[in-house]
Amino acid sequence: DLSALRVEEVQNVINAMQKILECPICLELIKEPVSTKCDHIFCKFCMLKLLNQKKGPSQCPLCKNDITKRSLQESTRFSQLVEELLKIICAFQLDTGLEYANSYNFAKKENNSPEHLKDEVSIIQSMGYRNRAKRLLQSEPENPSLQETSLSVQLSNLGTVRTLRTKQRIQPQRTSVYIELGSDSSEDTVNKATYCSVGDQELLQITPQGTRDEISLDSAKKAACEFSETDVTNTEHHQPSNNDLNTTEKRAAERHPEKYQGSSVSNLHVEPCGTNTHASSLQHENSSLLLTKDRMNVEKAEF
């Protein structure tokens, strides 16, 4: 173990290094160091905050020279020094078990990766560091076993998940096959086929009936047209017969005018059967003409 005197000496050296690497504005270890034209180094955030307070150039807090945003430059070497100082402080805390008085939040800088452990060898070769390295080497064999167990647990979990997924996939297939086998029997399929065939026959029977009705309507229309044509021909046949009657009536009127007047009046009210309204109107006109002729003949006879 380190003596108290040596611990104090190391602590004083760390404090001196820390004062050199402090920012003059925030009085902390410089984060993202930036250098000016006057070779003074500050935190990048502190300098941008200072420049944004005034429009135009501002003055350096140490030498009062003008500073602009374009004049600022990043210093990589200074950032490396800060990183190495942080590593020294971490090693000091691990070796002594004491917390550094002016320690900052170094938890963000710590890294437990194997590459980081290899890099620590180049920091300080001390008894405390050696003991700590031995402890780490002793704890390393235990870690692979834990990793193997965790991997086995994960693989077993994956296997159970896969088996569950396969079961879920197989179950719908089985149910679907069961439904297909038990849903419709052979008799049901035959009945469905016969039902479809009967429906098709009914459709075939319905369509000819409609065509037959249309044919019957067409035949009825044709018969009505033929009947009207026969009526017209009958009226045409009746007209010459009426003319013959008129000639006979004229002759009778010349011989017996008194008797014919009474008979002509009675004939006005008689309509021949089986004739249309057109034929009756023609008869009325003929009878009126005959009456006028008879009157003329009677007057001539009187004179």
Rank of each mutant, 00 (worst) to 15 (best):
P57H: 04
E84G: 07
C43S: 14
V190F: 13
L282S: 09
E180K: 13
A224G: 15
F45C: 08
Q53K: 05
N243K: 14
T230M: 07
Q168H: 00
Q201L: 06
D200N: 12
N105S: 12
R212W: 00
D119N: 06
D218Y: 03
T149S: 05
K37Q: 00
F78S: 08
A252T: 03
E302V: 07
R251H: 08
V161E: 09
D66V: 04
P272L: 00
N65Y: 11
E99G: 09
N157K: 11
N234S: 04
N157S: 14
K37T: 10
A301D: 11
R174W: 02
E22V: 04
H40R: 09
V177F: 15
L50I: 03
L94R: 13
A4D: 04
R295G: 14
K44Q: 00
G56W: 01
S79G: 00
S156P: 14
D213A: 02
V265F: 03
P141L: 14
R251S: 11
K19R: 12
M17V: 05
T163S: 10
E84D: 07
A133T: 04
Q11R: 02
E9V: 04
L158I: 07
K108I: 15
Q205K: 00
Y104F: 09
P114S: 03
L151R: 12
S152R: 08
L117P: 04
K300N: 00
L204I: 14
I88F: 13
I20V: 09
S216N: 10
G182V: 09
C38Y: 15
D213V: 13
A107E: 08
T292N: 02
D200Y: 03
L27M: 11
L137Q: 05
E271D: 03
R132H: 02
K55E: 04
E258K: 04
D1N: 09
V298A: 13
A220P: 14
P61A: 08
K37E: 00
S183Y: 00
R6L: 05
K37N: 01
E302D: 06
Y104H: 12
R6P: 13
I30L: 09
S219F: 00
C60S: 15
E99Q: 06
G159A: 14
Y104N: 00
R165G: 05
S139N: 08
Q59E: 00
L155P: 14
H237Y: 08
E187K: 08
S152C: 08
S113F: 07
M127T: 02
L151F: 04
L50V: 06
Q80H: 03
Q80L: 01
Q125E: 05
N102K: 05
L2S: 12
I20M: 06
V270M: 10
T194P: 03
S126N: 07
F45I: 05
E271A: 14
A253T: 10
V82I: 04
R70T: 03
T194I: 00
T68S: 02
E8A: 06
T96A: 02
R135K: 09
L50F: 10
H256N: 04
R135I: 04
E148Q: 06
K87N: 05
V82L: 03
C43Y: 15
V190I: 09
K64E: 03
S288I: 13
L203S: 06
V10I: 13
H40L: 10
Q93P: 12
E142K: 13
K87E: 07
E302G: 13
L86S: 03
K250M: 04
S3F: 03
L146W: 09
D188H: 02
A301V: 04
L98S: 03
C46S: 15
A301T: 08
S185Y: 02
N276T: 01
T233R: 03
R130I: 11
L50H: 10
K37R: 04
K54E: 04
K134E: 14
S241G: 00
S103R: 09
Q138H: 06
V82F: 11
S156C: 07
S280N: 10
Y100F: 09
A133V: 05
L51H: 13
R295I: 03
G274C: 04
C23Y: 15
E148G: 12
N131I: 11
R212T: 07
E258G: 12
E299V: 00
K49R: 10
K109R: 10
K250N: 02
S152I: 00
E74V: 01
A220T: 08
V153F: 03
E140V: 05
G262A: 10
A101V: 03
I124N: 05
N143S: 05
E254D: 03
S103I: 05
I20L: 11
C26R: 15
E99D: 10
H40D: 07
L5R: 13
L151I: 05
D188G: 01
T76K: 11
S156Y: 06
V7F: 02
R162S: 07
S197G: 13
H284N: 05
T277N: 06
N234T: 08
Q18K: 14
P208T: 00
D66Y: 03
I89S: 12
C225W: 15
A253D: 08
C23W: 00
I41M: 15
K64Q: 13
Q93E: 07
N297T: 00
L51R: 04
C273Y: 08
F92C: 15
P114L: 12
G274D: 04
Q261E: 12
T211A: 05
Q147R: 08
L146M: 07
V232I: 09
K54R: 11
T163P: 15
R255W: 01
E142G: 06
L282F: 00
L151H: 13
Q18P: 13
E249D: 07
P114H: 06
S216I: 13
V265A: 03
N15K: 10
A133G: 11
E8K: 09
P257S: 03
C90G: 04
V7I: 07
E84Q: 06
F106Y: 03
I30S: 11
F106S: 14
S126T: 06
E9A: 00
D39N: 04
I67V: 12
L27Q: 11
S228C: 02
D200H: 03
D39Y: 08
D231E: 03
V7G: 07
G128V: 11
L62I: 06
V198M: 08
P172T: 14
E285K: 11
S145Y: 01
G159V: 14
G128D: 08
L5I: 08
N157H: 10
G182R: 11
A252E: 11
L86W: 02
R70S: 09
R295S: 04
S75N: 10
E22K: 04
V177I: 00
L268W: 00
F92V: 10
A16D: 09
S150G: 14
E83K: 13
G199E: 09
S79R: 09
A193V: 00
L81F: 05
C225F: 00
Q125K: 06
C60Y: 15
E271K: 05
L81H: 07
R295T: 01
K55Q: 09
A223D: 12
Y100C: 00
F303S: 13
E99K: 10
A220E: 09
S126G: 10
T160S: 08
I25S: 10
S219A: 08
C60W: 14
Q171K: 02
K64R: 09
Q138L: 04
C273W: 00
V265L: 08
K49I: 00
Q261R: 07
Q147P: 11
T247N: 02
S280I: 02
V13A: 01
I14M: 01
A101T: 02
C273G: 01
D95Y: 15
S150N: 06
R165M: 08
E142V: 07
E214G: 14
N267K: 14
S122Y: 07
V10E: 15
N243S: 06
A223V: 07
T211I: 01
T36P: 01
A101E: 04
C273R: 01
L86F: 09
R174S: 04
S71C: 12
D119Y: 13
E142A: 07
L62F: 02
I30T: 09
Y260F: 10
P114A: 00
L27V: 11
N157D: 13
C46Y: 14
L217S: 13
G262S: 13
I88V: 12
K250R: 02
M17R: 15
N143T: 06
L86M: 08
A133S: 04
V34G: 12
F78L: 02
M47K: 10
Q125P: 15
E271G: 10
D39A: 09
R255S: 13
H40P: 15
A91V: 14
G262V: 11
V232E: 06
D200G: 04
R162K: 04
P257R: 07
K192N: 15
I67T: 13
P24R: 00
L289F: 02
T166K: 14
K87T: 06
P272Q: 03
K31N: 10
S263T: 05
P33L: 14
D294V: 13
S3Y: 09
F45Y: 03
Q168P: 08
L48R: 11
F106I: 08
R77G: 12
R162G: 09
I25V: 05
T68I: 03
R77K: 13
K259N: 03
I89F: 10
C90W: 05
K87R: 07
N234Y: 00
L137P: 06
L181F: 01
R77S: 14
F106L: 10
R6C: 05
Q53R: 07
S139C: 05
E140D: 11
V161G: 15
Q171R: 14
F42V: 01
S126C: 08
K192T: 15
P257L: 10
K300T: 02
S35P: 06
N65T: 12
L289V: 04
K221Q: 01
T36I: 08
I123T: 07
P172L: 04
E9Q: 09
A16G: 10
